[in-house]
Design a protein around this nucleic acid. Sequence first.
DNA 1: AGCCTTTGACCAGCG
DNA 2: TCGCTGGTCAAAGGC
Length: 489
Amino acid sequence: MAGFNDNFAVMGEWVDCSTNHKKRSKAELYSEVSLEEDVKNKDFLQTNFQERSSYSQGGGLSERVAARAGFKVPSINTESSLPSLCLNISSPGVSPATLLESPVFPSNPLLSPTTGKLSSLHLDHEAKNEFFDDISRRSFDPTTIGLEPDDSQAYDRGLGDSMASSGAPEDDGYNWRKYGQKLVKGSEYPRSYYKCTHPNCEVKKKVERSGEGHVTEIIYAKTHNHPKPLPNRRSGIGSSGTCNDMQIYGTEQQDGFAGTDENIEWTSPVSHHSGSMQVQSGTQFGYGDAAFFKVEDEEDRASHMSVSMGDEREADESETKRRSYYKCTASGCIVTKHVERASDDLSSVLTTYIGKHTHEVPAARNSSSHVSSGSPGTIQGGLATQTQNHQVHYPVPHSRSEGMVTANSSLFDFQTPMRPPWAGFSVYGGETELLRLSISGLAIGQERFTGLPTPQAGLTLQLPAEPKVEPVSQQELGFLRSSLIYREI
DNA sequence: AGCCTTTGACCAGCG
DNA sequence: TCGCTGGTCAAAGGC
C-alpha cells in the first residue's frame, strides 16, 4: 500500500483533569486501556503531553493497565483480511470513557471555565491542577445546560463504562442505590436497576454490562430534579474530577493560528437527538471560513458504525446527513473541509478538515460574517468544550456500516498563537481522493456503542485508499490526548 | 445506625 | 387464563 506501507501512529498523552491520584488513576486507566499499541514500526508518530513524565512511569501501558485493572488491555490493531486498511478497536477495553476522553470528544481543559478564554498552554503544574480543580467542581449537570431528559440520559450513557471495574454505579455525578438485579432474556449478564438516592428524585437507570464488568448499556428513566451532589459527598471514584464533568462554557477560538480575535462566547445547548451536545458557536473551525468556498453538497444516508462498549453488537443506526464540501480558496492550498449535519437537525454540525494549509491564515474577518447561532458545531461526546474539530476522516464505503474514526487535533487549537497552521497530523488520500477518518457514533447519546460484526466486535475502520501521513513534531502534537495507532494489514 | 448490595419473591404487561 | 418477561419490592446481610 504505497504511501501507507508502514505502520503509523498518532499517539498522545491524556490531559489529566483530575485533582488527585485516585481520579488520576481512573482517567489514566481508561486512557491507557484504550489506546495502547505495540508500535513497532519506524514510522509511527508519537506525541507526548508535556506533563507525561508526571504520570507515566514508563513500561508497557498494557502491562501497567492490566496490572491495575485486572483485565487484558486490548489494543488497537488493524487486523483484517480486507485489502484495505482497517482499524479494529477491540471492544472490551475501549471504554466509552476512553472514547469520551479521546480527541474525538474534544474536551478543552485549557479553556477557562469561567471566562471561556483560552488559558495559557504553559501553565505550571500547580496552576494546571488548580485549573482542573476548578473544572472538576463544575460538575456537569445536564440540566444546567439545557439537557432534556433524553439528553441527560445520553450524557450518562456516555459515561457508562466508568463503573466498569469498580462495580459501583457509573459515576455520573449522581448517587444511586441499586434496588434490583435481574437476568433478562437475551442478555448473558444481569441487568442492574438503580434509583437516584436524592429525595423525591424518581430517576432510575438500568445498567447492563458485559462479563468483564464493562457497561454495555445504560437506560435512564425520568430526569433529575436536583443538582448533582457535591463530588466530595460521594465515595465512589469521582468522575466529577474528570474532564467529562466540565460544564460547558467557553470561547471558541477560530483556528486562525495567528490568534485572530474571532472569539465567540458560547454555551452548550444540547441537541435533542442522540444526546449529541452542541456548542452554540456556529463558527467554522477552520482557518477562517472566508478561505473556503463550498464545492459540493451531498446528502447521504449512512449507517454508522459505532464502538462497542463491551458486547458485540451490530450497529443499525442510520441517519440521513447532509454534507457540504468546501475547499480552501488559497492558491495552491489543498485543504478541504466538509460542514456535515443531520438532515432533520440542521443545527447539528460536524466539521471535518482535510489537509494542511500551505499559507498564512487570512486576515481576521468580522466574526459575525460566519457566526451563526443557528448552526452550532457539534461536539460529539458532548463533554467537551472544544469546538475545533480538526478531524481527518476516512470514509467507509456505505455498503457497510460507516465506521468513522476521527483523528481529532482539536487540542492544538489552544496552542495559539504559537500553533502552526495545522498542528497535528494530516492524512491524505491517494493521489486524487482525500480520505476521511473519523469516529462516529461516539456521541454521548449513543445508547450503545456497537461495531461491525467482527470477531473482536468493536470498531473497524476501512481505508479505501492509501493515506499519506505527514509527521509532526511531538510538540505539535503535545496536546493530542489520545493515541490512534494504525497498522497496515 | 445508616446506607448499601444482594437476591428471591411478587407484580404487571403482553401475547 | 396462562406463561413469559421485565421491573420492583423487601428482607437479609455487609460495610
